[in-house]
């Protein structure tokens, strides 16, 4: 298959779009880890809750905008609840206890969702205003919705940047990352701060779930593959670093997308077509894990992680 410049540009755009969706997931995860030191495996459940809430509300109201708000609210509420009832008891525990507890939460959320919504996937579609394609400069025909996803993702990233660097909450968050005792000594209500940070991360995951749910399948278990990818992202970027999460997301998005295209083409040079497609796609599915291993071998704390 020949590769024109326009096609290559479109694929790069696809990689960036995939990366930006990963960023929405990874941002919350890395924030929670950076501030509270908590490993949250149930972050994928919040993604799923966002998608289900959006599908349910869009089905009832017919409005995608209301559905997005509902997804944000539902995921934030679920996140806050999770933090208050369970997770705040685990901040001082080691990572193992956190893994076990949040693994338990995955079981509860997944099967709980199935108990409420049934075993069949739900319907959630792109809003009419954003459906179809537009022609970009260079003659690239590109999905308007995917373009909007890139826009929303960049906006969120910018908003987070402002929040962390310019607001009182951001200062508290950064202080909390460095020294828990100090910030408590400054008179900040640390448990309230943690709940807010957690709910914020959860809302971002819920937003990602709703946005992605419109072009994917809204079903139980949809959060787990994304969760693993989000972990890969934050580890590559350096845990706790929002900037790292952003760079890591784009890297993973591009590697995954472009690997899926170029590796089969590469094998095609010296193999027959079917075998090349199969071998190339096998290596492509391993590519992001290889990327992560290589990054960690070269920089054991990720690209932007604090040196220890």
């Amino acid at each position: 298959m020949t590769m024109t410049t326009a096609l290559l540009a479109e694929q790069v755009l696809n990689g960036i779009q995939f990366g930006i969706m990963l960023f929405l997931m990874a941002a919350g995860l890395t924030l929670v880890f950076g501030v509270m030191g908590l490993i949250n495996l149930a972050h994928g459940s919040l993604f799923m809750i966002g998608a289900f809430a959006a599908a349910a509300v869009a089905g009832a109201t017919g409005s995608f905008a209301i559905a997005l708000v509902a997804a944000l609210a539902a995921a934030a509420a679920a996140g806050a609840l999770m933090e208050i009832l369970v997770l705040r008891r685990l901040y001082t525990r080691d990572h193992l206890d956190q893994v076990l507890a949040t693994f338990a939460l995955i079981l509860i959320f997944s099967e709980g969702t199935r108990a409420v919504f049934g075993s069949f996937p739900l319907f959630l579609n792109i809003p009419d205003a954003l459906s179809g394609t537009i022609i970009l400069p260079g003659g690239i025909q590109y999905s308007l919705y995917r373009l909007s996803l890139i826009g929303i993702g960049l906006l969120v990233a910018f908003g987070l940047y402002l929040l962390i660097t310019k607001t009182r909450l951001g200062i508290q968050v950064r202080a909390g990352e460095n020294d828990r005792e100090m910030i408590a000594a400054l008179g900040v209500d640390i448990s309230k701060l943690y709940t807010i940070v957690f709910a914020l991360g959860a809302a971002l995951a819920g937003l990602a779930g709703a946005l992605v749910g419109a072009i994917q399948s809204v079903q139980v278990g949809m959060g787990e593959p994304v969760l693993i990818l989000a972990f890969v992202v934050i580890v590559i970027g350096g845990i706790g670093s929002i900037k790292g999460a952003f760079v890591g997301s784009i890297l993973v998005g591009l590697t995954d997308t472009l690997g899926g295209i170029f590796l089969p083409m590469f094998f095609d040079v010296f193999m027959d077509k079917s075998a090349a497609a199969s071998a190339g796609s096998a290596l492509a599915s391993m590519s992001i894990y290889i990327l992560m291993a290589v990054v960690l071998i070269v920089r054991p704390s990720g690209l932007f992680g604090a040196r220890t």
């Binding site: 880890f33 490993i39 990572h95 693993i228 972990f231 890969v232 580890v235 845990i239 894990y289 290889i290 992560m292 291993a293 960690l296 054991p300 704390s301 990720g302 992680g305």
Partner: peptide, 9 residues
């Protein structure tokens, strides 16, 4: 956590 994730990879 890096160790957790690289072994996962």
């Amino acid at each position: 956590v890096y160790f957790i994730m690289i072994t996962l990879a």
